[in-house]
Computed example of a mutant assay.
Amino acid sequence: MNLKIKPDEFSELLSRLNKVWRVYAPSAEYRGGRFSDTDNVIYQPVSAWSDIVWQEKSHMSPNTVITPITETLFYFDKETIQIAEVDTTPMLIFARACDINAMSRLDYMYLQNGGNADYSYQLLRDKIRFVLIECEESFDNCFCVSMGSNRTEAWSAAVRFSDEGAKVCVKASELLPFFANLGEACDYTPGFVEQNKEQVRTPDSVCDDPQKIRDILTHHPLWQAYDSRCISCGRCTTGCPTCTCYSLFDVAYEENPQRGERRRQWASCLIPGFSDMAGGHGFRPQPGNRLRYRALHKVNDYKARAGTQHMCVGCGRCDDRCPQYIKFSLIINKMTDAVEQALAQEANL
């Protein structure tokens, strides 16, 4: 079903949906942005047309509402443990193609990696549906086309926003009743970005051996430049829709230290100390080492392990958020050039 809906009708649609679903979309957090007097576009519950920010890329990904920044896993009391309840109310998330594609990466990490499924994520995953926000053109720093994540069919409905309202394509029958008596029929087929200003070549385009790529890049001098540039703030990872690193810690209640809760909280492989072991040994003491670890994971190691696509979906949020203006797309191209050069030198020996 294809409909053209006016803004006031869209607000009515959201009102109906909110009776059954938890509806999330990019929305402005007033004056919460990175610079003075700017808003932060994050994923929040929406209930009206005016709540949704569709004109620009969200600063944070839907990951923030799927796997919260801080989450209680269980409560403890001496010898007893009580698993924390998970809100399994169905979720309807408005997201762009790259973020919808990112879900397959999260699914692998939380449900298949290591042969164990994450309890909280598994309970919620089957309750999540997506409404595709059409990108009429590429945003700054996006390179989704190069990463093959500019298209997706994993949506229940698709929407093209404009100042006059929205064109909607409804694919899932479970959503059809919410559109009763709204809008007028129209012709609409969701479109996808076919070209980005930023273009990348991943290392596997010049070498099909992940171990060979790793051997060439592990001690390559290209990472030394980032020892002084990268300040290890971790902002690239907090904006990433596919990062899944977290730390675990226990919180004991002051009134009774034998009672408390275990929480997990987002962490970053770019932060000093993330890979430290008991006894104080650290594997990656320099910022360049940590950036290398993240880059290889995103465009080599994950694909080698999962056997599917690269972890990076090319959303460009890491480039958007970096206070040092480090471009991850440029890093990927540098990695590929380094592998290509090493292979050429090897062939000439």
Rank of each mutant, 00 (worst) to 15 (best):
G114P: 08
E164P: 00
R129P: 00
D187G: 07
Q195P: 00
L175Y: 07
E137V: 11
G183H: 07
D99G: 07
S146L: 13
C144A: 12
W155Y: 15
E153M: 10
R125L: 08
E184D: 03
G183W: 00
C135F: 02
V170G: 00
V170D: 01
N141A: 10
D187M: 09
V145Y: 13
M103H: 12
K167E: 15
A157Q: 01
F143C: 06
K167H: 05
A154Y: 08
L106M: 15
C98K: 08
M103P: 07
N116Q: 15
T152W: 03
I128Q: 09
S156V: 04
Y108R: 13
G183A: 03
R160P: 01
F130W: 12
G165C: 01
G148I: 03
E153D: 15
N141S: 10
N101W: 10
L124C: 04
S149P: 06
C135V: 05
I133F: 00
Q112M: 12
A180Y: 10
R105E: 15
C186Y: 04
A154I: 03
F130G: 03
L123Y: 11
S146E: 14
L182Y: 09
E164G: 03
C135M: 06
N116D: 15
E153A: 12
E174R: 04
V145C: 14
Y108I: 13
N150M: 05
D118A: 12
R151T: 15
E174Q: 07
A185K: 14
S138I: 06
E164D: 15
Y119N: 06
Q122V: 01
G183E: 08
F178W: 06
G183D: 01
R125M: 05
M109E: 15
G115Y: 11
A154T: 11
S138V: 09
K171F: 06
E134T: 02
S173H: 10
P177M: 13
Q195V: 10
A180N: 14
M109G: 01
L124N: 04
E164S: 14
D107F: 03
E136P: 03
L132D: 03
N150F: 07
I133W: 00
F143I: 04
L106R: 14
S120I: 00
G148Y: 06
R96K: 13
G114E: 08
E137N: 12
Q112P: 03
A158I: 01
T189G: 09
E153R: 12
A117W: 07
A172F: 03
S138M: 07
G114M: 10
S156L: 06
P190N: 05
Y108T: 15
A117F: 08
R129W: 01
S104P: 05
E184M: 02
K127M: 08
C98F: 09
A166I: 01
W155D: 00
E164V: 06
F161M: 02
D107P: 01
